[in-house]
């Protein structure tokens, strides 16, 4: 119940009565800008600045070395496997948690969030313990002649672990809010379970799903700590883009390191842009639904 006011003071979106004095507003705004500028904007600018510091030729050369290309390919491959897996999981988890009531429901929700509070390094370590040199599953896995640690499957596994919550936790509150009325009507009208899911539920949650996919993808492509532990840093084979950045940096090839980093920063910017677009769309949809 915000009353539109005749006089919204400068810099404020509330009535003069509920606004701080102008000088306080200016100081708070400047402080916030200063803080965000130095802690968020500056690092972003530095990435691009350093990347191009040796000129465009060096920049492009750094991006087209075989190792860099291999790292890009591996990163894309990992995301291509991880995102769909977590999407299926997220939809399944949200369906049973949001649409049904059962004992242990809260615990299950917490379990899904668990990887968020585990250090990425620990995430890498736990898979080392399973599949590493003395791992308790290593003998079993060796019968299949599959290598997991210091290989692509390990990278995929740890990335799956750290991104488990992303899609599910976007979908659960959304589905919960939407209730079961739509689905129940569809079932009453004779739709099958699958039809109901594809034609009613999925369209209802599509913005939330895309949002979760976006965040999941950003993390999958950018994960460093967990992947670093399990990959073995084998150039051209188990190096993802963030790991490649680290190697170049540690070898004092700063311009090259920042060049690869700039690709990841670009990914971040695209993620933020799409995120803003999705939010805008989502709000519009909410408004259209009369919320």
């Amino acid at each position: 119940m915000r009353v539109p006011s005749s006089e919204m003071p400068f810099l404020s979106n509330r009535s003069p009565l509920l606004s701080e004095p102008l000088w306080v507003r200016i100081i708070l705004l400047l402080l916030a800008l200063l803080f965000l500028g130095s802690f968020l904007l500056l690092p972003l600018l530095v990435v691009f600045g350093e990347a191009l510091s040796q000129g465009v030729t060096v920049y492009l050369a750094a991006l087209t070395t075989p190792d860099a290309l291999a790292a890009i390919r591996l990163t894309l491959l990992t995301a291509a496997i991880v995102v769909p897996c977590n999407m299926v999981f997220g939809l399944a988890a949200a369906w049973c948690i949001a649409k049904f009531r059962f004992p242990g429901r809260g615990l299950l929700t917490t379990l899904i969030d668990l990887p968020f509070s585990v250090s990425p390094v620990v995430a890498g370590l736990i898979f080392m313990l399973m599949f590493g040199a003395q791992g308790w599953l290593t003998p079993w896995i060796q019968t299949f002649h599959v290598k997991i640690v210091f290989a692509v499957p390990g990278i995929v596994l740890v990335t799956l672990f750290v991104t488990v919550p992303f899609i599910a936790r976007e979908l659960i509150p959304l589905m919960e809010e939407q209730g079961v009325d739509d689905e129940e009507s569809a079932i009453m009208l004779g739709a099958s379970g699958w039809q109901t899911f594809w034609r009613v539920t999925l369209p209802n949650v599509r913005w939330g799903l895309m949002y979760g996919v976006l965040l999941c993808n950003a993390r999958a492509m950018g994960e460093f700590g967990a992947v670093s532990v399990i990959s073995g840093h084998i150039r051209g084979s188990t190096n993802t883009m963030p790991l490649h950045v680290e190697i170049l940096y540690n070898e004092y090839e700063f311009a090259a390191a920042f060049a690869v980093a700039s690709l990841l920063a670009l990914l971040a910017l695209v993620t933020l842009a799409v995120k803003t677009y999705l939010q805008w769309h989502y709000r519009k949809q909410l408004r259209a639904m009369g919320h």
């Binding site: 009353v3 005749s6 006089e7 009535s15 003069p16 009565l17």
Partner: peptide, 14 residues
């Protein structure tokens, strides 16, 4: 309601 808020000093009259 606006009149009441003006009396209370929660809105300023033009």
């Amino acid at each position: 309601t606006t009149l009441l808020r003006v009396v209370a000093g929660l809105e300023r009259p033009d």
